[in-house]
Amino acid sequence: MIPEWMKEVDVGPCSCSAVYHGKKGFVGKTIDGIFSFLQEAFVSETYAKRDGLLQSLDPRAKLISILAVIFATSMVGDLYLLIIVYLATLLFAYLSKVDVLFFIKRVWLFIPIFAGIIALPMVFNIFFPGDPLILLAYLGPGAHIGPVSLPDSIFITKQGVNLAVIFTMRVATCVSSVVLLFITTPQQVLFKSLRSVGVPKIYVLTLEMAYRYIFLLMDMVREMYTAKKARTIKSRSMFDEQKWVGGRMGYTLIRSIDMSEKVHMAMMSRGFNGDVKVMQQFNMQHRDYVAVAAAISLSLLLVLIAHDFIRV
C-alpha cells in the first residue's frame, strides 16, 4: 500500500531557474531552456491531476473533440466566430481549474513570434490595397525602394488590419485548444488515446518511450553544459565552442543509439518479442459520448458557417 502522503500532489506550479552573474552565453541559454522545458512539463502535470471538467472526461473523447474543433477552426474565416471559439477554450480552461491567466500567457507567448512576422506587413497597403485607416507617410508619386516601386502614400488599411487580426486569432485559437488538451491530460494517457484516431500501437509505444527518454537526454545535456560552465574560466574562440557543441551532440547521438540497444536487450529479457501490447483501461461513459457529440456538432456547424451553408 502506498501511504496517503505519497499520493499527494503539489498543485501549485513550481518554478525552477538557474542563477546567473553577468551575460548569459550559449551555455546559460541552454541550461535555462532545459529548465523551462522541465518546468513546463511539471506544471502541465500538476494541472492534469486536478479534478476539473476536462480532466474528468475520457481521454479518447477529449482528444477527438479537441481535434475536431481544431480542424474546424482552421477553416473558419469569420472574426466573431473565432473569438467565440477562443473564449470557449478560456471557459473550458477555467472549468478545468487551470489558472486562466497562466493559460492565456502560455498561448500568447508564442503568438507574436508565430504570426506577428507574417501578420504585421499585411496591415500596410504595400502588399494589399485597401481603404486607408491611418496615414503613415506621404511619399509622392514615383517613390521606390531600389527596383520596387511604392504607392504614393503608405497607410494602414482597414482590410489589412481585419486580415491580420483574423489570421492571428485563428492561430491563437488553435494553439489554445492544443494547449488545453495537453495540460488537462496526463501524458501517458494522452499518447494511449491516440489509438482512437488510428495511430498504430507500435507508434503509440514509440511516442510513450520517446517522451520518457526525452527527460533522460535533457538531463544529460544539462549536465554537459553545467560541467562546461563549471570548468570554464575564459571563453574560447567561437569555432572551438561550436566544435565542442558538435562533439556533445555527436556524443548524445551515440549514447542514445547505444542506450536503445541496451533498452532493447532489457525489453527482450523481460519477454518482449516485438509484438506491442498497449494496456487500455479507458471507460466511455454517457457524458463522454455527449461531449464528443457536442464537439463534433459544433465543429460541423463551424465548417458549415465557414462555407456559407448557414448564414449568421
Binding site: 518511450m209 520517446a210 517522451y211 527518454y213 536503445s260 533498452v263
Partner: peptide, 15 residues
C-alpha cells in the same frame, strides 16, 4: 524487435 527502442531513442534525440 529493435524497432521500438531504436526509433524511440532516435525521436528523443531529434527532440
Amino acid at each position: 524487435s529493435r524497432q521500438v527502442p531504436l526509433l524511440a531513442l532516435a525521436a528523443a534525440f531529434s527532440f
